[in-house]
Amino acid sequence: MTIHVLRPQQQADTTSTAYDSVWAGEEAGAGASTQQQPPQQSALERTMLAQDKIYVVLAVVLLVWLGVAALLFRTDRRLAALERRMDDTK
């Protein structure tokens, strides 16, 4: 006969166990715990939440960089238009 250890109520304890799917997802992403995994986790989440979520930072930085680069290109177009207009008037 096996004696099953009585497990504490999960819902009551929000300090020591994950109560938010995001935190549980992080553990699963890092491959730490398979116990309290939410049933469904998309491939995107598995990727983004791994490695202490550094990929989220990478995504943010890349978006910022692409935004700045887009501004650079737009400013150049404006300068080129002005240059053309000045060449025409003279």
């Binding site: 990929y55 930072v57 990478l58 930085v61 890349l62 960089w65």
Partner: peptide, 10 residues
């Protein structure tokens, strides 16, 4: 720079 950013984090 896009490649550098990727390398910096990956």
């Amino acid at each position: 720079m896009t490649a550098v950013l990727a390398g910096a984090f990956l």
